[in-house]
Each structure stands twice: as C-alpha cells, then as structure tokens.
Write a protein that binds this DNA or RNA. Sequence first.
DNA 1: CGTAGTCTTGAATTTTGTCAACAGTAGTGG
DNA 2: CCACTACTGTTGACAAAATTCAAGACTACG
Lengths: 239, 239
Amino acid sequence: MDAQSIKVACSSCNLRELCLPMGLNVEEMDKMDNVISSRRRIKRGTALFSTGEKFTSLYAVRSGFFKTCVTTADGRDQVTGFQMTGEILGMDGIVNDLHSCDAVALEDAEVCVMPFDQIEELSREFTTLQHHVHKIMSREIVRDHSVMLLLGSMRAEERLAAFLLNLVQRLHARGFSQSELILRMTREEIGSYLGMKLETVSRTFSKFVEDGIIDVKQRYVHIKDTDGLRRIVNPQTCG
Amino acid sequence: MDAQSIKVACSSCNLRELCLPMGLNVEEMDKMDNVISSRRRIKRGTALFSTGEKFTSLYAVRSGFFKTCVTTADGRDQVTGFQMTGEILGMDGIVNDLHSCDAVALEDAEVCVMPFDQIEELSREFTTLQHHVHKIMSREIVRDHSVMLLLGSMRAEERLAAFLLNLVQRLHARGFSQSELILRMTREEIGSYLGMKLETVSRTFSKFVEDGIIDVKQRYVHIKDTDGLRRIVNPQTCG
DNA sequence: CGTAGTCTTGAATTTTGTCAACAGTAGTGG
DNA sequence: CCACTACTGTTGACAAAATTCAAGACTACG
C-alpha cells in the first residue's frame, strides 16, 4: 500500500465550503473529521483508482488535478471529466461496488479518503450531509448531461470554447484568474474529452489565436475576449 | 393540476424488483407504500416535468416510454436518455431544486410519484433503501459516462449499433424479445441522442439492412444478426 | 380522404480525421 | 550542466465522414 496516511481535519480545511462537508455545523463537522481519517498522495501520471478495482471510498481532491476516463474492450478510451480542488471522485463505483473508470492524477495530488460506508452511516444521522451527498451526485448527473449536449450538438470550435469557459469559471471559483490559465492536460486529453482529435484541438486553438480571442503558449492560455468565446458557444443569444 | 391520483402499492407491483423498492423487506415495503401515494398519467407528447420547474419528486416509470432532453439558450436540443418501465426520472432536479431537463412521454405513460423529502426521510431509517438510492444515482452516472464514450469516440454505424443493442437488452430484461423491437422515438430523436442528423440515422439503418444485419420497417426493427451488431461496436474484440 | 409529420435517398458541401513531417519542451542520466 | 530522447504540439495536404439541401414517398391520424 503506497497510500500515505496523514491525519487531517475538515474543520480546519480551507476547502470545506467547496467540498463534501459544506454547510455542516460544528457537531457534524466533528463527526466528519472522524470519518475522513486519512489523506492519500498521488503522483503525477498514476491512478487513484482504476476500472475493476473494489469500491470503498469517495475521494475529495485536496490539491492537484485529475482526469477520469473509461476504456472499452477494444482499447478505445474516453476522458469523462477533469476534477480540481474540492471536487469529488469515485461515485461511479457505488452501483456495482467496482470502479468503472480510471482516475489519474495529471499533476502530483492529494485527496481526502472518505470511506463510503461511513459516509452513509453519518448521512443517516445528519440530514444536511445526506442531502449534500444527494446534491453532489445530482450535480455530477447534470454536468454529464451538459457534456452530452456539447458532444452531441456542438462543432469543434464551439466545444473548445465551451471547454475553456468552463475551466476558467471553475478556476475563478477557486480564486484564480478569470482570464489566464495553465492547462494541466495534453491536447490529446482535451480532444478525448471533447470528442475530437488532437490535431483538431491544436488547429482550433490556432484559429482562436488568429481571431485575437486568446493567446496560447503551450499549456498557458490567456483569454483576451471572454465574450468572443461566449459568442462562439452560443451564436444566437450573444449576437 | 392534470395529475390524476391513483392509490397504489409497491408491494403488489410487478415492477418492484426493477424499481426503487428493490430488495426491501415486508416492513420497509409497507412504509414505502405510504411514501408513494400517487400515480400520474402523462399523455403522449406532454411533459412529466420541464426545465426550470421546481423539483419535488422522483418518478418511477410504471408504463410507457420517455425521453429526457436538455435545451440551450439558443434553442439547441439534446436528448440525454430514453427511459422505460421501472427506470427512475428526475434526479437532475436534486442539486438546484429545479429540473434541468424536460421529461417527455413518447407514448401514453404512467409514473409513480415519489416525493423526494419522504424518500430521504425513509432512507435515513432503512439502510437498504438508502443504499439503493445511491446505487440508482451512481448507475445514472455510469450510464452517462458510457454515452460520452459513444458520442466522443464512435462513428455513426457504431453508435447506432450500440444504441440498438442497448435498447433490445433493456427490453429483454423486461420480458420482451431479444431480436424484435418497436422504436418509440423518431429518427430525429435517435439522432439527437446519438449526436447525428436524422438523415444519417436513416442512411445507417439502410446500410444495416443492405448488410443483412437487421430488417427495418419504419419503427419496427428485427435484429437478424446480433453478433454482427456487436462486431460493429467492438471491431477488435469480436474479430 | 387529406394533411402533417416522418422517413428515405441523392448530390454537393463542409467538417473533421488521417498521415506525415517537423519543431518545441521537459525530464533523464551521464 | 548539457545533451539526448521521448513526449507533446503545430501545420499541411489529402481522404473520409457526416451534414446540408432538396425532392419525393410513406404513414398515421383526425
């Protein structure tokens, strides 16, 4: 077991308002601290969990950046999401007690381990936590639906614009810039997530640069014209 | 309120092993009967719920067939799923207390109304129900991921083949034929779900017919060669 | 029986993918 | 610390896939 256990407390975590314990009172937070008994460090490029592994816990991203991806029998691969600080990983495993995707760290990361049986136990006791668990799963469902919309009905430019807007919005919610970001994933991973080839991702970036909407230097992106991106995603409503 | 209330009991429902009360004991089932106090009939073409409506309940499909779809500001539309008997609708609404998609009946249908606050209350009492609620939400997440895989990495023929296999498998689990089905949705709705235009759906059906894999007459489909369909979805593994 | 909706098919066009060459970057080990 | 190497990213030319537009046939419903 390479899992490194570190005793930590939700109650003193600066992410608690983004994370699972959101909205808990002092008593509830205390109990939560007992449930979240360990953290685990994940090195860049390695998996937090993999397809077929037994499901035991949900994980809250404490630091770092993850991708989740599903793989078919014939080796096809699809990135289903990118997860950053405060986001929850592992809900795919509940239904069959097995994980149905891989969660891979795109940079050195740390997660809080939340044994699911204890989450269930505690959420029978505290309505707030119970409801929050439901909300987090529902949020994942709604998010997935918006990815389906993107994959099913948008063209390459629209997809990439929507992707950038989504990333920068989530980063901004975590105190980062609204206009600058460092991509933690390759063009190929972006392409997999957006249902396009890496060459198309690269070309589309180049087009946005030509049009003066963004600057790109490798993983660094500067959004010069947020409304320009919005217009690409939503041609009608933004004129 | 056009909702027609009919007193019914899970305990005497022939769908209980597919549906939310799966695996409950007699006592639990009794309490469940109190929660699911009404059914509602939905006419073909009308919505069980719509985007923006207040979320109050989950719904179990008792009879009939639904689609769910999300819509963008600029009128783009994406079918996110088709739901048949025993499947649960409405989980999209939990996170914001508002529905984020439309659920439209594709034929006259009937659903069991399950007020969510009562589901939560009961699932604090019964571990079995609590866990089953979690499983149902997790199953939806896993299902959504497989749709992303389909939309992100498959070509038109593969998508349609996967779609047909999935439909017939779910119908078979409900006692219908493994090889014959009646589509309840239009080519346009199939296309929206699969991220392709209705003409492409039509052409792909025609190709499958030419290749002797299926017979199609409008909404009626006869699968003559299930393995042929499997080979289309999974070129490598099925040789 | 008529009409609106649904489905099929063809031809031209657009979009994206494929293949290939090359350039830039980061990490490794001497 | 530098050079090597593997990985990542860009761009061009061409090919393949899917969309668009259009015409017409079929079906089901009132």
